[in-house]
């Protein structure tokens, strides 16, 4: 049974609730029969205490009955506004990510591109409480690592897994499609697609249209964090020979992104500090209010009800302990019933 946001597990107990009125009419205290209560002078303090104890009785009985019925506060989804953005991360898991920025296998104190991005992204996640993250990895095929969630611990765990040895090649198109699919289409506010890779690949013109449509529909802000290996071509380098996507895939992917009509920014990083710098810039840029929903679980109020009943009972026990033995004198009088022996006076009037 639920009334508003409160409910009880077994409402049948509530039929006992009228018992709570009992303390208004009866009391468990010893009664001292006196010839006239009017003999006691009017006393506001006594009147207040009497009402307090009546209230305590009502509280104790009703608290116990309600506690037996098992009260709870019903759970409900709560929509709140926070600073942050839904961020879908698309992370390259191709084999080259396991190399250092110098293009070698890491040895000693060196760290691979994957390890560096892992470390820096882990700090990025959780810096703001209301960011939503989805993690998608891709190489030849995209892998959904973590759907859109606000559980930052899980997201960090997902990111912690991205420096596992990488797989094959780089298939950007399908990865982008899956990363885009993580955004809830109905949610409003800004969206961020963070694309981390150390290389690019040709996007099939047939897939390009589908991607273009998806980008137009969702309109995410796109950040490309390009982990450039030393010596490899930059995004902006025109190839020496023929300027085809096959010859310079990075440049053409950049051009494709620019042609999408969404806010787009590319960061080119040639080392861990540059990656950190790029991530800090992204974090600074994405400061939009987003509405987010938090489920509020059902709260058990039994303990609260028992605490109220306990408070009432505590007051009643105090009152019982404070009871004065009004007729103590009578008990003493019964114990000594004999009269003081009067001297025998026999006198005629």
């Amino acid at each position: 049974m639920t009334v508003g946001s409160l409910g009880v597990a077994s409402p049948a107990w509530l039929w006992l609730l009228p018992l709570a009125l009992l303390p208004l009419f009866a009391s468990g205290r010893r009664r001292a029969a006196v010839s006239a209560v009017a003999a006691a002078p009017a006393d506001p303090a006594s009147r207040w205490i009497a009402w307090l104890l009546r209230g305590a009785g009502v509280l104790a009985v009703s608290g116990l009955v309600v506690a037996l019925a098992g009260p709870y506060g019903a759970g409900a989804p709560v929509t709140r506004i926070g600073i942050g953005a839904p961020i879908s991360m698309l992370i390259d898991r191709s084999g080259s990510m396991n190399e250092t920025f110098a293009g070698r296998q890491p040895s000693g104190a060196e760290e691979s591109k994957a390890a560096a991005s892992r470390r820096l992204l882990a700090d990025f996640v959780g810096a703001r409480a209301h960011d939503l993250f989805a993690v998608t990895a891709f190489s030849t095929a995209p892998m959904l690592v973590m759907p859109m969630t606000d559980r930052h611990a899980a997201v960090r765990a997902a990111i912690a897994a991205i420096d596992r040895p990488g797989l094959d090649y780089t298939n950007v198109a399908r990865g982008l499609a899956m990363a885009l699919s993580q955004f809830a289409p109905e949610s409003s506010g800004s969206r961020v697609l963070l694309f981390i890779s150390d290389g690019a690949a040709v996007i099939d013109p047939r897939v390009q249209d589908a991607l273009r449509a998806a980008f137009t529909k969702l309109h995410p802000t796109l950040y490309w964090l390009f982990l450039r290996t030393k010596g490899s071509p930059s995004i902006h380098d025109r190839p020496a020979g023929e300027d085809t996507p096959q010859a310079a895939p990075e440049r053409h992917l950049d051009l494709f992104f620019k042609s999408l009509g969404v806010p787009y920014r590319a960061f080119e990083a040639e080392g861990a500090p540059a990656v950190a710098d790029a991530i800090a810039q992204i974090a600074a840029l994405e400061r939009n209010p987003i509405p987010y929903t938090e489920p509020r679980p059902r709260r058990d109020l039994t303990g609260f009800a028992y605490a109220l009943a306990g408070l009432g009972l505590f007051l009643l026990v105090l009152a019982a302990l404070a009871e004065a033995d009004f007729l103590a004198a009578r008990v003493a009088g019964v114990a000594v019933p004999e009269r003081a022996p009067a001297p025998d006076i026999r006198r005629a009037a």
């Binding site: 029969a33 010839s35 006239a36 006594s46 205490i49 033995d325 009004f326 007729l327 004198a329």
Partner: peptide, 27 residues
């Protein structure tokens, strides 16, 4: 004496009127 000088100094007493004037708690 229980009705005046023999009263306890401290405590709660629930007085019950023998003439039916009701009960009263007195501190």
């Amino acid at each position: 004496s229980a009705e005046d000088a023999g009263l306890p100094d401290w405590g709660l007493v629930e007085l019950d009127d023998l003439e039916g004037a009701g009960r009263r708690l007195v501190f």
